[in-house]
């Protein structure tokens, strides 16, 4: 019997090694897998490369992981915010490497990894600092920049409901990066509010099919 549901957050993240590349879901705090972040902080893996739209908000989730000095490099589109103080401090102290990527290019690089695309041309950032040193090409009178996929060892995402085959649904705009990150990592770990029996998620409403998910861990109270 396939059972991707793991009994605890600790068990879900136990094998994450130092130096791993980790996709972390969420846009700001919506969809941020904060309970998995806490488990990763307790687990202690260091020298991580993390991919998220932001670089942590306030003191929880990714911000707490940065404060715990477990992150070596961040790939993101929008690090500087009014409440990104942990990132700002570590960045200014030279403890963190930043790779800044336009938001749509970030999403497409993740999607490309999940879809087996070798690289792609996008018009975004052509003629700007963020395209410096990159290969460009003119296609049908438009200029494009070559971008490469972002593959990862792990994806830590937050979904709403999940079953033992790993099928997932999300809630409102907390969906954001979850589905594409799930497809782009070797091991996707989803924290869910609720676990349900097979068939309880309408197949027409499955957002992330279980093939993309390795582990599901429930954070809400037992049903």
């Amino acid at each position: 019997m396939i059972n991707k549901i793991v009994p605890s957050l600790e068990a879900a993240v136990a094998d994450i090694r130092d130096g791993s590349t980790i996709l972390i879901g969420g846009f700001g705090t919506a969809g941020m897998p904060s309970e998995l972040m806490d488990a990763l902080i307790a687990q202690g893996a260091k020298g991580l490369t993390v991919v998220n739209n932001n670089a942590g908000n306030a003191d929880a989730g990714l911000a707490a992981l940065i404060a715990a000095k477990q992150v070596r490099k961040i790939i993101c589109s929008f690090p500087r915010q009014s409440d990104s103080w942990h990132f700002d401090k570590a960045y200014r102290a030279g403890e963190l490497e930043l790779e800044l990527v336009p938001q749509g290019t970030l999403a497409e690089r993740i999607r490309a990894a999940g879809a087996g695309i070798g690289a792609f041309f996008t018009p975004t950032a052509y003629g700007t600092l963020l395209a410096e040193g990159k290969e460009t090409r003119r296609i049908n009178d438009r200029d494009y920049v070559l971008e490469h996929p972002i593959h990862a060892d792990y994806a830590l995402i937050k979904a709403d409901r999940g079953d033992r085959w790993g099928n997932l649904t999300y809630r409102m705009t907390a969906r954001n990066f979850g589905p594409i990150m799930a497809s782009a990592a070797k091991c996707t770990i989803a924290q869910v509010r609720e676990t349900v029996e097979l068939g309880q998620i309408d197949p027409e409403a499955v957002v992330t099919p279980g093939i993309f998910v390795k582990r599901v861990v429930r954070t809400g109270a037992a049903a």
Partner: peptide
């Protein structure tokens, strides 16, 4: 300055 771009470049081109 700590740079941040978000979706601005995508919107400008798209």
């Amino acid at each position: 300055a700590i740079p941040a771009v978000g979706g601005a470049m995508d919107l400008a081109m798209g």
